[in-house]
Design a protein around this nucleic acid. Structure first.
Length: 225
DNA sequence: GACCAGGCACATC
DNA sequence: GATGTGCATGGT
């Protein structure tokens, strides 16, 4: 695939660099053991609700869904449109996200007997394509569901991943989602726990230091800039 | 009041 | 293929 890391020598150094980043972030932030969510359903619902939205806004919506006994794929599908939209209002874009949650729950109910984990019974590429075919699930949301809910190894590229990788010159400024994903996946051991933790640490760096206006002074990665 | 936050689909050129 | 736009709340 992509135009990144064509030579073995460069590839080797990139692998060392990525793990140096990893330990620098781990030293600073500690083990993240991340994605908030007690069940695969809750994780997947959170992945859709958090699209272009602050997580604190999502937490309120999750609490509402839980209080209504609707924090599962099967329950979501049975809610009236207005009721579901009302419950997730705080997460923003609530009409759009209501449709997206419904489309996702219908996919799981109709084709996987209501169980997200049953998606892992089909080959990885088919599984990812299946998710991408659901209206409202793009690459990041699909990969978040695969990594954190289904727990299959795929690297999640979000705003923070893109921002950190770009600012540090790991990928071109105009790199595509697929190119960034490939960069990380080809330079890290293909391991679910590593992919989870690495992404979580990138988000921690992003939230604290790698904003649109960077605040690099105390960033654990600043010495690599 | 402006900016930002763990995107995506769709229209248009 | 690239670019622009609509979707919306809530914290800083």
């Amino acid at each position: 695939m992509p135009r990144l890391n064509s030579s073995n020598e460069k590839g080797k150094s990139q692998k060392s660099l990525l793990m140096a980043y990893y330990w620098a972030m781990e030293d600073h932030f500690g083990f993240q053991d991340w994605w908030p969510g007690e069940t695969p359903d809750e994780v997947a619902i959170g992945a859709i609700l958090t699209q272009n939205t602050n997580w604190s806004n999502v937490e309120k919506a999750i609490r509402n869904l839980k209080a209504a006994g609707a924090l599962s794929i099967s329950k979501l599908a049975s809610l009236a449109r207005k009721e579901l939209a009302s419950l997730i209002r705080s997460s923003g874009y609530f009409n759009i996200k209501e449709r997206r949650l419904r489309a996702f729950s219908e996919e799981i109910m109709q084709n996987f007997n209501g169980s997200i984990l049953k998606m892992s019974s089909i080959p990885f590429n088919a599984l990812r394509e299946r998710l991408l075919a659901v209206n409202g699930i793009g690459e990041e949301t699909a990969d978040s569901i695969i990594l954190y809910a289904i727990e299959a190894p795929t690297f999640v590229v979000d705003t923070y991943t893109r921002r950190v990788a770009s600012r540090h010159g790991l990928v071109p400024k105009n790199a595509t989602y697929a190119e960034i994903k490939y960069f990380y996946e080809s330079n890290l051991e293909k391991d679910v726990d590593l992919f989870k933790e690495y992404h979580a640490l990138l988000v921690a760096v992003g939230k604290h230091f790698c904003k649109p206006k960077p605040q690099c002074e105390h960033c654990p990665l600043s010495c690599y800039l």
